[in-house]
């Protein structure tokens, strides 16, 4: 349903993405792996329309979206969980959820979904009247995921959901991603440095290196790929 074809993105004269092509199919978890500054976040920003590709195309359900404003891309059904969570620090947790539903106008549906999120993430309910900035990193990650789901997306793009979290919360976050995928039928594009965790829940994976896709395979094959093991999985 999401298809990137030969995407090239630049920051001024610097090329951040070189001929990146990838696809995400409905109900699939796909992980995008790579080290620092390899273009993972740029890929995400390009999909969301926060930066524009110079060449190439991004399609969602066959419709070209790489020239659309972000607001239309979200409306089309792509919701982001941004790197470092990026909650609105001085809005309450509840207001953060409402911001996630910004593109929707069905007041009743939004209310039911808020309740659904409270059921899904008990900690979000506990803290719903607090300012987002007063929550711990792990709690904020829960709010960020709930906020993204409030848009009723068909595809969730998550940028480094495990970053800066305690190991306990990392496990929890990945469990929830699987649950969202299984129970809500939402496809997930998972941008991660934690390759072990990402591949443990993904169907397929892409590996980015200095802006280029260097590997693409099923999660199983990637785990057994010697190059992957050496460079990303920390297997001796």
């Amino acid at each position: 349903m999401l298809k990137l074809t030969d995407v090239n993105t630049f920051y001024g004269p610097i090329q951040a993405l070189k001929n990146v092509s990838l696809t995400v199919n409905p109900k699939e978890i796909v992980s995008l792996l790579g080290g620092n500054a390899c273009g993972k976040s740029t890929t995400m920003k390009t999909i969301l329309g926060l930066v524009r590709p110079k060449h190439g195309r991004v399609e969602f359900f066959g419709r070209r979206i790489d020239r659309l404003p972000s607001s239309d891309i979200v409306r089309a059904g792509i919701a982001p969980v941004l790197e470092a969570r990026r909650l609105f620090p001085f809005l309450t947790v509840h207001e953060n959820l409402l911001m996630g539903a910004y593109t929707r106008n069905d007041t009743e549906g939004i209310r039911t979904d808020v309740e659904r999120m409270y059921a899904l993430f008990p900690v979000v309910k506990e803290r719903n009247r607090q300012l987002a900035s007063t929550l711990s990193g792990g709690e904020q990650q829960m709010v960020a995921m709930a906020r993204a789901l409030m848009a009723r997306p068909k595809l969730l793009i998550m940028d480094e959901p495990s970053m800066g979290l305690s190991p306990l919360y990392v496990d929890k976050v990945f469990e929830i991603i699987q649950m969202i995928n299984r129970e809500e039928g939402v496809a997930v594009l998972l941008v991660e440095q934690n390759a072990n965790m990402a591949l443990s829940i993904a169907c397929r994976g892409y590996v980015l290196q200095t802006g280029e896709i260097v590997l693409h395979d099923t999660a199983e094959n990637l785990k057994n790929n010697p190059l992957m093991q050496k460079a990303y999985l920390g297997v001796a």
Partner: peptide, 20 residues
Amino acid sequence: GMVIRAMAQDYEAASAMGVN
């Protein structure tokens, strides 16, 4: 008002929520 406050705090995140 909520959107204006959100934009004041993080306009990029607001725009990623679909705010024009």
